[in-house]
Design a protein around this nucleic acid. Structure first.
Lengths: 237, 237
DNA sequence: CGCCTATCGATTGTAGACAGATTGCCGCTC
DNA sequence: GAGCGGCAATCTGTCTACAATCGATAGGCG
């Protein structure tokens, strides 16, 4: 267990607790830690040079965000996934994604657009390179940022929860399997660009349509067994 | 500080940490602790006979649920509310409430219906009596239970977040001010009954329409300054 | 031979005490 | 007299150590 790889994406050298949280989020999103796995408090405290209480605090927080599940007198486990999860996901995702994207299109500033383009640049780089975890991570960051631009505290919790499993579903299904999937990936990348454009032009209708198509692409990319049509949403603010 | 009043609604004598969480939730929902108030770790640890670490754990959890807000090296504060909050609330609430209610109508079992009726009985009792906190609390429980019946892990986080402010908005505006408001309150109570009926008959369309009307009633019950129309949702599963 | 039970080990939960940061106050200087 | 700087008190963040609970294994009984 000398593998001391600490991928603290934010590079928080001093704040080890933040590093712990970020690292765990990243590992869970990229399935370095599989759904259902147990998390050992002592191992984590040693890895990050902390004692157990702050580790436990971080656990509670991650549990609140939906990354892990806690049970009394039992070890923490990474939130599990099932076929039911997939069904639930594709039922709700269009609803939430469409709503956040619409709101983002209405309120985005130039700084917001710049931030989105920056993330998208990293995503495109991951797509062109062979960085699977990067794709998963920056796709997550992209949609999360849209949610932050939308800036509605009631919508964000569900978006965050969706994004966790969006990343994990992606990690499962977006393997470099065949040429068709590579095409789809590049299509997804173009859709990101188009979504940014629509948001930049405050075109909520187009942004919503694009994000729906974006989700449909994900859905079609995997076996159809778990994919209902999803809720339709028409927003008239 | 001999005031050892422990209003643990669940009466969890042994599990003091659960009692702490439940009590804080209840106090925040009923605005016994006002938005923006600071929470003193030491005072809470003394009140519930705990040391600070478990109190801090509970704080992290409550922060994840949206009840309080944490900042580094600063005291925990109850999540604040603003005019913007009200606007955001009525924009998103119809979307989430409609979706959860539809799903509940599709999946509810007889046991679920019985549970809803039980909560509704307590709500009606609070309405007929003069128990304002009871109204706030059981209305919260009613809609939360519908969310639990819907049983979609991606929808629940936002519903929970909405319900926090639904309760607090209710506490602000549903004072026993005038006869009109009393009428509205009784109307809301009848709507609850109707919603249960619609769910029991698996009539998703009717359930959705009812819950939208239910929210409109809330919206009309207060000054119109903060109330946009809200997003429309049409669900075709 | 199989099932139940009791004890042991390991892990979770908690307590009390210590370092680091922040805020408010007081005194000093201009 | 007003503004700035330093000091102290308080609170947050953390650590070490102890208690309680759970799971597994081994032994005994039917």
């Amino acid at each position: 267990m000398a593998t001391e790889q600490i991928p603290t994406e934010a590079g928080a050298g001093v704040d080890r607790k933040t590093a712990l949280s970020s690292s765990l989020r990243h590992r869970i999103l990229t399935m370095q830690i599989a759904p259902g796995s147990v998390l050992d408090e002592i191992a984590l405290s040693e890895e990050f040079g902390l004692s157990r209480p702050p580790v436990r605090e971080a656990m509670r927080q991650l549990a609140g965000e939906g990354f892990i599940e806690l049970e009394a007198n039992r070890p923490a486990r990474v939130t599990s996934m099932s076929y039911q999860s997939l069904r639930d996901f594709f039922l709700v995702a269009p609803l939430i994604y469409a709503a956040t994207t619409r709101l983002a299109a209405e309120t985005a500033t130039k700084a917001d657009i710049a931030g989105l383009r920056e993330i998208q640049a990293s995503f495109r780089q991951s797509v062109e390179g062979d960085d699977i975890d990067g794709r998963v991570f920056y796709n997550d960051q992209f949609h999360l940022r849209i949610g932050e631009v939308a800036n509605n505290p009631y919508l964000l919790p569900s978006l965050r929860r969706l994004l966790i499993d969006h990343a994990r579903i992606g990690k499962i299904f977006y393997r470099p399997a065949n040429a068709q999937m590579q095409d789809n990936l590049e299509e997804a990348c173009r859709q990101h660009d188009d979504i940014i454009d629509a948001i930049a032009h405050h075109d909520a209708d187009r942004a919503e349509a694009l994000v729906r198509a974006h989700l449909d692409l994900s859905r079609k990319n995997m076996a159809m067994y778990a994919a209902p049509e999803g809720m339709q949403v028409a927003i008239g603010v």
